[in-house]
Design a protein around this nucleic acid. Sequence first.
DNA 1: CCGAAGCCGTCCG
DNA 2: ACGGCTTCGG
Length: 787
Amino acid sequence: MGIQGLLPLLKPIQIHRHLSDFAGQTLAVDAYVWLHRGAYACATELATGRPTTKYVDFCIHRVRLLRHYNILPFLVFDGGPLPAKGGTEKDREKKRAESLDRANSLAAQGKHTQAREHYVKCVDVTPQMAFQVIKVLKAESVPYIVAPYEADAQLAYLERAGLVDGIITEDSDLLVFGCKNVLFKLDIVSATITSISRSDFGSPSLGEDSLSLIGWSDCQFRWMAMLSGCDYLPSIPGIGLKTAWTLLRKYKTVQNVIRAIRLEGKKSIPHRYLDAFKLAEKVFLHQRVYDPGLERLVHLTDCPTGEDLDEATAAYVGKDLDPSLAKKIAEGDACPISLLPMEDINPSFVPKSVRSLPLRAQDPNTPVNGKAKGKEKATSSGGLLNFFTPLPKATTSPKRPATHPTSVGRASGKRTLVDVMDEDMAVKKKRLEELQRKRAVALSSSRFFGGGNADGSPIAGSSRLSPVRKHSKENTPVLEEVEHPPEAEDLVAQEDGYISPSPSLSRQLTPDLSSPVRPQPSKNPIGHEDDGDAVSSPVLPRSHRTTNPTYSIQPMLPMDVERTADGARILVRESESPCRTTHHAPSTQHIFPTDVERTADGARILVRGSESPSREQQMDEEPLDGPDLRFNFDDEELSSEIGGWDDDTQKENEILEDTPPCSFPRDTRNEEDEDRFLYNEDLAEEAMAAVRAKVADGWRAKFGFGADRGAGREQPTSMLKRRKTASSEHLRRSPARRIKPRRSEPYPATRKNVDVFEDNTTSLSDDLIEELVDNTRGRLEAFRYNR
DNA sequence: CCGAAGCCGTCCG
DNA sequence: ACGGCTTCGG
Ligand SMILES: [Mn+2]
């Protein structure tokens, strides 16, 4: 469920994009929605226990559509129940049973249509159903993970770890979990999706004075969302997003907001709300997730003081599981609910890949028929690496003829992306290997491998072991009360804290970082993190970058390993922002403005790096990624207010103190610096002004106030001329066709257009998809703009 | 203006 | 189940 009203609120920064814009990327998929909708298609069968694989087809279909666009899907399934979620399970079970009875009796009377209405109400997506899909994913070498608990946290973790470039979901919670690139509303007919990027949160289009998130840290954003009501918390009647925004802006901390509401006396706040809030926040921050490299569970964000969670809290964010069990669950071999071996509810369904995946299919070195895959699996030690292995391709030849399999390419011209994809996969594979290596080290406690770049570090597994994290103020979770909050800067803001995902993971590609993480200490007094990137990182699809030859290797190179005093932890961080790595030389530590601009679409100009006179330079150059929105344009009012975000919190609790909320591989040293900075009250005003100006320019460029946006990609809806933009986009893609959107015109899924699995399940053929794509491309116009 | 409650469609052919 | 959309009440 997510946060009520959050998506509508963020409409101004939604960007409608065509799937081809994501070519070359790996996108994590919140598979729950697909399973649920797929189950809708066969509710009767499921409810009555008749075997069916329609829901599998539904999912696979989408998997193939993504693959058609050279997107590698990485499916993530929900796992076990989290105590944090209301224990409404029983109620639900009851309702389902009632619906079933009703449905059955209607069916007995021959009223099948009516019966279906009720069958639909008892559909429940189970891990065993997910397993049916997993069987196909394995056969087609599509990566997946069954989350130990909520898919949300697992998805966030994968993105932070740099294993995926974005997340496809319908759940607005992902934004609260701190994800950077979230994609909603996949429309398979028009092959489009709605993108919301954390980096756009600083856009002025959200409301110049009304709901602006400029300067808001992830932490503040999370508080706003939580105050308005979330799954893990009883809500305060009468407080929605807008009110939460207003109150938070005024009172800065959750406890102050609560106090104010109480004083006002109009609304009733649940008892112990603040405690509940703190606990709920921990679920967003520290929920347990599976680390595919370490092959065990870790917290989404390390807990501040190492293992500070008391038993109750630990259970609240998901109990730890034995690594061997965790691995079985993650790979689908054990049921995340019963913890017993996975039961195959439909053993006769044995998917075989009729044809190999597009990406690998034509590779000369790869056998075209799925057989090879089976082998691969058998031999490999299991695990996700298999999925990233595909490229037997000869070295990295950049220009591989795109021989794509079947139809994929014909006419479309996109094939050259195959190379990219391969490279991208190679990068991810490397990343995973790196993780696994670390794991090996950790396990053996050996000290490492050293060499190469990755350098070895003694890894030890997790950073979580390290006792102290510095900094962090950021995310600090919630707050204890402090009487007089210091106004000045906020530490908090800084970041949001996330710490590096797992200690061991490096997130390389993740772009972002917005803010918080930038390697450099940002100096923003205001501190916020996230936004910082807003402008700067306009999310470029990796694909666009891929063509750059340097790309493949780069990502892995620049990593700084840091060791804590106890030597146990390593933080790996990249020197540059992942996003643009491609453009820079690997070793480059500083990013300059010039780079930014060369995105494939040329349209965007990112201001990143612009040298802002001030701050950055002063600091020593740490290059900022982009215009740092933290200083935004704006409103002093806002700035000042926000600037004061709770510092209080931190000081009180040690735990809080260490919580580092930063998401990226953060360098501890930098963190310290950052802190110092934050404390430093003097920000050069001028510097701020200069930065603001830059940011403004950046936005102008990005949203095209007046400028020519060139190839214009879709613009955030609220920006002017959205409609026009859409039109031009449409024209650009398919000048000749202008098809009115007609939802009711499904593509012809005739038998002959469908692939038939050996077990008779079907799937759309690539040819059909191709056709479908061509026929629907013109429908971009159909996007429903909010109007 | 804001939030809450209620209704609708979801898939498929 | 869940978001989107509409309507209703403060
Ligand atoms: Mn959720």
